[in-house]
């Protein structure tokens, strides 16, 4: 008996003391570690888009920011990665509203390209040459573009260049002000809710469906803040109950993850909304694995209804 109890006890004490010690150290160092990470990020954002007094607002977490000053959009900053020779080359790129690159930064941290060859993508001369270039110009000279490759490190140079170009392609729609870029997507859905009716705009993101001088119902647009960013929800209301609901599709800029967040767009979930009063949307169950997104949808439905003042 003693042979079992004593070692157990000793091991228990050892583990407890060790974890207590680590908890204390973690408590002390973790705020500092987080602060470092934030400072570093802001530093990087400032390097690629240096504007005095500008604000860097995140659009997609850790991936996309817009740069604003006095409420005016000056451009965007994105992070994009591309497989290099030995690691993923991460680029941070600032683009102004005319589609020209303001600055490119390739952080050394976490990069394990060959020292002295691929690692040279982090040298200032390489990053400088992107400045002022447009999307179609961002190619190596040997690929018909305007940029010099690093001698003996073509794979790394090409990966960095492609990361910049594909990011510009992917995020260029965010260069325009939000109102303009979002204007298109919901218009074509408005008529789907009330097929035969005329849709009349009644102020900010609120429409009324009219047929033969009779009001059939109303539609409002509301925004939710999900896991990956902002998305729009269209709600059609008839006789105080939800008639139908539509959530922006990924093609239309729905920012949530395909495997989880996108489940809120499935009919099995959306049909739970139909037939209830928008006030009561908060009671609906969340989609497993997409709690944040589900909550965002419900909040959008409720808050939008409040905004338009009920029916």
């Amino acid at each position: 008996m003693k042979d079992i109890l004593k070692p157990t006890f000793v091991l228990l004490i050892t583990a407890m003391v060790a974890s207590a010690l680590l908890a204390v150290v973690y408590e002390k160092t973790s705020p500092e570690i987080e602060k470092r990470a934030k400072e570093k990020l802001l530093d990087n954002l400032k390097t690629v888009f240096p504007v005095e007094g500008a604000e860097y607002k995140p659009i997609i977490k850790d991936t996309l920011w817009c740069v604003e000053k006095d409420g005016k959009r000056l451009g965007i900053i994105f992070v994009n990665g591309m497989r290099g020779y030995a690691s993923v080359i991460k680029v941070i790129v600032g683009v102004d509203t005319t589609g020209k690159i303001v600055g490119v930064h390739i952080p050394k941290e976490g990069l394990s390209e060959t020292p002295g060859l691929g690692m040279k993508v982090t040298e200032p001369w390489f990053m400088e040459q992107f400045k002022g270039k447009r999307e179609e110009e961002v190619k190596l000279k040997k690929d018909g573009g305007t940029l010099d490759a690093i001698t003996a490190a073509t794979i790394s140079s090409r990966a960095a260049t492609n990361a910049v170009r594909s990011g510009m392609e992917k995020y260029k729609k965010y260069l325009k002000e939000e109102e303009k870029s979002e204007n298109e997507w919901y218009h074509k859905h408005l008529s789907e809710f009330f097929p035969d009716a005329e849709i009349e705009e009644c102020g900010n993101n609120f429409w009324v469906a009219v047929k033969d001088n009779e009001t059939l119902g109303s539609i409002y647009l509301s925004y939710g803040e999900g896991y990956g960013g902002k998305f729009g929800v269209l709600v059609a209301v008839k006789d105080g109950k939800i008639k139908d609901i539509y959530i922006q599709s990924p093609d239309e800029g729905f920012p949530e993850t395909q495997e989880f967040g996108c489940k809120v767009r499935e009919h099995t979930y959306l049909k739970k909304f139909i037939g209830i009063s928008p006030d009561e949307a908060g009671k609906i169950d969340d989609v497993t694995g997409a709690t944040i997104t589900s909550e965002a949808v419900k909040k959008a439905v409720v808050s939008g209804y409040k905004r338009v003042g009920g029916e």
Partner: peptide, 19 residues
């Protein structure tokens, strides 16, 4: 356990003060 505790301490401290 003893070794990994000290290693973790070093790791945290280095991350915080010598990133």
């Amino acid at each position: 356990i003893v070794i990994s505790t000290f290693v973790t301490i070093v790791d945290y401290v280095m991350k915080a003060y010598l990133p």
